[in-house]
Amino acid sequence: MGIKSFSRKRAIHIMLVYTGGCNGCDIEIVNAVLSPKYDIEQYNVFLTWNPREADILVVTGPVTRFNEDPLIKIYESIPDPKLVVAAGACAVMGGVYKNIHGDIPSEEIMGPVDNVIPVDAKIPGCAVRPKDILSGVVASLPVLLDK
């Protein structure tokens, strides 16, 4: 383990990007990090809103048209090595917005996240449960540290 991985291990920063889901997943993720019950911070994982500081990008939502370019921009401004975690059914496969429709399909959805940026880990669920987020993020840490 190099000195970089060594220090990175003590302060993993995840950045949450919200691309137009229903809010359920985001609140669960913020809940998992900040609330006293789940508290991912005890595993040295912190929430940040600054892409240049982030190691893991957590994306929720099906990527609406307006969010496509900002998402790519945010992805590009994260320094290497980086991981992308798609959280929730919307981010993993487009969710209800892409897959269910009546007479007219929605043209607003550019997702799933796979279509826009490369994804390393997927956490299913609608909405994702805090425990799944915990295990998803913790399981992806070795990948990040070996990079």
């Binding site: 137009g20 609406t64 307006f66 969010n67 009546g102 007479d103 007219i104 929605s106």
Partner: peptide
């Protein structure tokens, strides 16, 4: 607002 527009009322049409 308008960033999150998903057109949910439109995809409901005819379901």
């Amino acid at each position: 607002i308008g960033v999150n527009h998903r057109g949910i009322e439109r995809i409901m049409e005819g379901l």
